[in-house]
Design a protein around this nucleic acid. Structure first.
Lengths: 243, 243
DNA sequence: GCAAAAGTGTTCCGTTTACACCCATGG
DNA sequence: CCATGGGTGTAAACGGAACACTTTTGC
């Protein structure tokens, strides 16, 4: 259950709401990404009052004194989306003196890759909205959050080519076209279907489910799932997806 | 001029020395790397008293309230090495609850690539030592600094293959073998000389200085320098050094 | 039959890899 | 004359890019 002031960019909090058991100068902000019909989307929240009123921002919170940074990020993502299993990685710390107008706050940004179908956004009350945005058409954003998103998109591009993280955005069983769409959305390129298929197949990352799509208005595609064992090997040994 | 408690891992400070104009829960720690005779070395400091006595640690400091994170990292590196121009990039924030035994501190790690011949380490007094260590034989380290160094080495491996940062470790004029040694040291592999030469040459990153080495006990090598214009293009467009 | 996506085949061409080999210099 | 590193050549294997083509399905 989302409570107001609980999953928004922490800087949006009014000072008087700052809890006692958190670090005063540090927050986490989360880049929550999911695929939606071939488009890469990011989850943003809108606050209706305070110095950031009527602008969208990342979903973040304070870090408790007895909580690891990553745990704080995990807590906030779970609270906002209901998802418990997702890929979570640190992007970077953002700490310019003037990034927040009222006082000095350093935020550590994490990006989370979630499966859209597992998400259930629960609204606490009407003090804010939470919604998905296509990364290609973002609204106006508070503070340095635009910079953070752009930085994360660059990082994702970089990362998706060297670690098989794209799979974290897919349902358990997926088609090769769905996978291709993820690469196309993140890298912002158009890929050749036959070549993409062969390339992915040769990596031995996929297990054929021996099942087909159902009720599609075209030839049904084979469903695959991801081989987690191979994933671990590739992560250590190196993975290369150049296009 | 280095003053005691001024360039060491800030957590080594005794509480009573914490200045007033800094954030209390945030520090920067620097991974200062340089090449020394074909070996990759990192600069560490040793504190002689306090809870971290007689162990080596990274060179860090507190972040002033009116200072960007990156500025703090730059200030500390310059103070420790005398170098003013160097490659500086953020690695990540490290913020486990128990990383520092006495209280909660989040540190933001930066890595700096400096040219060994530009470094002049000035000792403040005898409360600490500062020295270079081969990354392949590190001493015992305080707190989570071993984890930070290992993380940075992995990051460097990753980075050196996709951005021409290796050049930041070389003098202005260098030979192809020197460059090759950097790749070998960072990636921890042995590369084929003829193939390495051709690969680098084809990237058009190098300008032939039309000069040769002098006083070497073998055929003198051509000196090259780095074409900064091409660097910028490659950084945007993508750079790929696979081996 | 048509649209839409699945899936296969093939050709071209640049790159990588492995290794043999010659060159220049100081001791 | 030998050790050391500089530097070139080359053939085989591999891998990516481009694109033509066949298959399956629902409407």
């Amino acid at each position: 259950m989302i409570k107001p002031n609980d999953l928004l960019a922490p800087e949006m909090d009014k000072e008087e709401h700052l809890p006692e058991d958190v670090m005063r100068n540090i927050s986490v902000d989360n880049l929550i990404y999911a695929m939606d019909n071939g488009k890469l989307k990011v989850l943003l929240a809108k606050y209706k009052q305070g110095i950031a009123a009527n602008k969208w921002g990342l979903i973040g919170h304070w870090v408790k004194l007895d909580e690891d940074l990553e745990s704080a990020a995990y807590r906030v993502v779970t609270q906002a989306t209901g998802v418990k299993n997702f890929h979570l990685d640190q992007l970077a710390a953002f700490g310019k003196v003037k990034r927040y107008p009222l006082r000095r706050i350093v935020t550590v940004a994490y990006y989370a890759l979630v499966r859209m179908e597992e998400v259930s956004i629960e609204h606490g009350d009407n003090t804010h909205e939470v919604d998905w945005f296509d990364v290609k058409s973002l609204p106006e954003l508070i503070f340095d959050h635009k910079e953070i998103i752009e930085s994360s998109l660059a990082h994702l591009k970089y990362k998706v080519r060297h670690e098989p993280i794209g799979f974290s955005l897919l349902p358990e069983k997926f088609t090769l076209l769905q996978l291709q769409e993820i690469y196309e959305a993140i890298l912002d390129v158009k890929l050749d279907k036959p070549n993409f298929r062969r390339k992915i197949q040769k990596m031995n990352l996929l297990i054929n489910c021996k099942e087909k799509q159902k009720d599609v208005a075209h030839r049904a595609a084979t469903l695959y799932r991801f081989d987690i064992n191979v994933y671990e090997k590739l992560k250590d040994f190196g993975f290369n997806f150049e296009y």
